[in-house]
Structures are given as C-alpha cells and as structure tokens.
Amino acid sequence: MRVILDPERCQGHGRCYTLTPELFEPDDLGHCVVLPLAKDVPPELREAALSGVANCPEQALSVEE
C-alpha cells in the first residue's frame, strides 16, 4: 500500500500527522509531508495509514494498493 498526497488540496488541517506521525509530518507551514515509509506501508501500519487518510477534511490523501 502506498499513500499519495495531493499537495494542491492540503490546507494544513494537520489531522494526518497528528493521528499517524509514523507516516506523515508537518512542513514549516503545517502542511503535510508524506514520509518515505508511506511509499510502501508496512502491514502493521496499514490501519494507521488509512486512519490518517480518512481524517483529512480536504481528501488530499489517498491510497493505492
């Protein structure tokens, strides 16, 4: 599983990196940075990845299997 960010949609709500800091972190503006680990999500972080994705109010994040 791979997490994809649409940076045009991200507005810095910060839900992703607050809920799933293993896969996301904020940049200086508080917008989402997808960490390298999210390019191939380990099985134990699948649920956390989906939670980070589903909590984005802008639908800026998606997953690809």
């Binding site: 507005q11 709500h13 984005c56 109010p57």
Partner: peptide, 15 residues
C-alpha cells in the same frame, strides 16, 4: 469517532 474529517475550522484556502 474515527475517521472524523469535520469542517469545524472551515476548509479550502481559508482554513
């Protein structure tokens, strides 16, 4: 609640 993608802080560029 999870997920909870609420809009209490608005959304879009004026979040």
């Amino acid at each position: 609640r999870n997920p909870n993608p609420h809009l209490a802080f608005g959304g879009g560029v004026h979040r």
